[in-house]
Design a protein around this nucleic acid. Structure first.
Length: 205
DNA sequence: TCCGCGATCGTCT
DNA sequence: GACGATCGCGGAC
């Protein structure tokens, strides 16, 4: 196994991290690490390699038409998760940005697996191709066993939480590619998708 | 390799 | 009653 001791001890990124402009947060989340602790104690983790920003006033944002039961956590405090069901089958992971009342978030679209790869494999139906484990928002949701009941609204800055974002590597601007968001019709031309240049786990180049 | 389509269900019109 | 911030399969070329 690889040397994981250094990041296992790391504390989650602080709440202030999520108060920068949301598109800045979307860029800075690249290289950071999602840590999922299963009920039995096993850790699943991966490096964030692809994100998308969703802003207030953006027609593609779920909060565009106001607060509802589904998008309520987006209106909550920063540093919490907004998890929802997409296409009736995929759980999507977003991280809430901006102060309470401002509904903006970053969608985590792809991870590079670190810990718990074999468990992720079984959660993804036993597929053998490691690249395809987490190279898409629905795929990573399944790979880390996200559920709306247990994960929507959780505080990802809580050092004891089931879902945390901890510091990873620094990604320089030169290694970040800006592109158009995927799978939306409204605001499809906006370049608010970011990914790590050359990373094999990005959903689309 | 590319494209079209079905699965599946909560949410909002 | 329609439509997704998706995915994976099957058929055509």
């Amino acid at each position: 196994m690889s040397t994981t001791a250094s990041f296992q001890a790391a504390k989650p990124l602080p709440r202030e991290f999520y108060l920068e402009p949301t598109l800045t947060v979307a860029r800075r989340l690249l290289g950071q690490i999602v840590v999922r602790t299963l009920p039995g104690g096993e850790r699943l983790s991966g490096i964030i390699v692809e994100t998308e920003g969703y802003l207030a006033g953006d027609p593609a944002c779920h909060a565009y038409r106001g607060k509802t039961l589904r998008n309520a956590s987006m209106f909550g405090p920063p540093g919490h998760a907004y998890v929802y069901l997409s296409y009736g089958m995929h759980m999507m992971l977003n991280l809430v940005c901006q102060e309470e009342g401002v509904a903006e978030a970053v969608l985590v679209r792809a991870l590079e697996p670190l810990e718990g790869v074999e468990t992720m494999r079984s959660l993804r139906g036993g597929i053998t191709n490691t690249i395809q484990l987490t190279n898409g928002p629905g795929k990573l949701g399944a790979a880390i066993a996200l559920t709306r009941q247990e994960d929507d609204g959780v505080d990802v800055t809580d050092p004891k939480g089931r879902l945390q974002i901890i510091p990873g590597q620094i990604v320089s601007d030169a290694d970040i590619v800006d592109s158009q968001r995927i799978g939306i019709t409204q605001g499809a031309d906006l370049p608010w998708r970011y990914y790590i240049r050359g990373n094999a786990y990005v959903s689309r180049k």
